[in-house]
Design a protein around this nucleic acid. Sequence first.
RNA 1: GCGCCUUUAGCUCAGCUGGUAGAGCAACGGACUUUUAAUCCGCAGGUCCUGGGUUCGAGCCCCAGAGGGCGCACCA
Length: 516
Amino acid sequence: MASPFSRQANYRRESVSDESVDLGTNGLEQEKARRLGSLDALRAQGTNPYPYRFDRSHTLGEIRNEFGTLEAGSETETHVTVAGRILLKRDQGKLIFATLQDRETSIQLFVSKAIVGDDAFDAINNLDLGDWVGATGIVMTTRKGELSIKVDSVVLLSKAVRPLPDKWHGLTDTDTRYRQRYADLIGNEESRRMFAVRHAVIASFRRTLHERGFIEVETPVLHVEPGGAHARPFVTHHNALDMTLYLRIALELHLKRLIVGGMERVFEIGRVFRNEGISTRHNPEFTMMELYQAFADYTDIMDLTEVLFVNAANDATGSSTVLIDDIPVDLAKPWRRVRMIDLVKEATGVEVHPSQPREQLVSLAEKHGVKVLPHFGPGKIIEELFEATCEAALREPTFVTGHPVEISPLARVDRNDPYLTERFELFVGGRELANAYSELNDPVEQRLRFEDEQKSKEAGNAEAGSVDEDFLRAMEYGMPPTGGLGIGMDRLVMLIGNAQSIRDVILFPTLRLEAF
RNA sequence: GCGCCUUUAGCUCAGCUGGUAGAGCAACGGACUUUUAAUCCGCAGGUCCUGGGUUCGAGCCCCAGAGGGCGCACCA
């Protein structure tokens, strides 16, 4: 930076006390102008409203832990230095009570004119709600027992020039909460809690998997061929290579390449992108955890899935019980394991199997209001029947197994039934949370499955995959028997945190362009 | 993409049968040395989402559009 001083001067606002500056016509503009005016006043008296750093001796949570049981009307000898944002101010004349909030909690500042002196008292009185400050003082409790810091000095750490949302209600407008997540987090305890749950769930997964010898890896987000799931991709372009690239729709195919490479147990927690509708359960970008474990099959993966969920719930909330549709369900009990075709039979009273003639299944489907497209084979029709008649009713955790081969191009054929695969999807609260297989590792069969996908795609199935030659080459080097698992982390956080919309567990959900 | 709901002060919300815009908080001025969403007195703040239309008169009724929510569709 060649000329720091002139640069800084360029960033500095003109004084708003100049008559040339328009004070604005609405309340917000007037309030911002007032706060910008106090910035100028601070600078004029030699105070930097945006200092570079600050050392604190305690977080507010540490003070609460240490002194939370102090009885009313006590004063300690402990002198502390804290930092946070001023959320509330209660002016008593010669006393000010201010609520200071940091990341964990809030604590009251007790400011007495007699202690800090007239000038400092005025300066503190001129602080605005939303300002960041550092404060020093001794730990005390008021007569009513409120844990407080009896302040001897306060320094401004950052001036807020825009007013906070309502001090009591916070933000309620969902649009503003999602667009201005920063303002949502300042005012809404529930929002802060939800993202704490999210962090705890993801940290718990890493812990459980590290304990079991899994290695965390990172694979490409930009794919030459979007595979590993059925979904429409986002398309982009690399200029220097002049090639079309796709944002990944799944992590699967690269992680399996690592199993071929001998890494034995790998996982990745990463963003995937699907160019499809937005709903309370769908965001165009979302977080997937996939893992692959050599020498395991899908039943081993079911056991592991139960452990991952129970640990995550315990780590995030201290309990393995979650609310599903407001009903408590203990995740620690073993989950039901049932074949898709058996569930469809339960729901329809009719035996179904992918070996049946297509026409039979078509008429059953039509009886249940299922739309059958020309490229649907028997297996796809059974899945559609399942979705229409069973899925929403699967409230308690249920492993749905034995998906037809036709809809499972990467899963291994069931050792007891050549029409089905060794696969499960986990449903909780009517939502799909996980998908897993005994992974197909026969390169010749895998090529045939890909070719079937390719034919389906050519027949008009926009979601079908195509032949991934590099993946097949990897398979040819030999992949050990392997169990694999994919979990939609956002939906899991919704379950454990009891969120009603996926947007409540994503900090910055995808929204339409905002008009400024 | 379709249907229903919604949009009023910085924030949270009222607004009757169509009669000319309201409250609380925040802000501003004042009182107050133990408050807890402090309280009390005073004052100020508006593109009623946007554009048309009906009407003597529209926040309110009609039409079109935009943002948001929910449901459906889509979606392994």
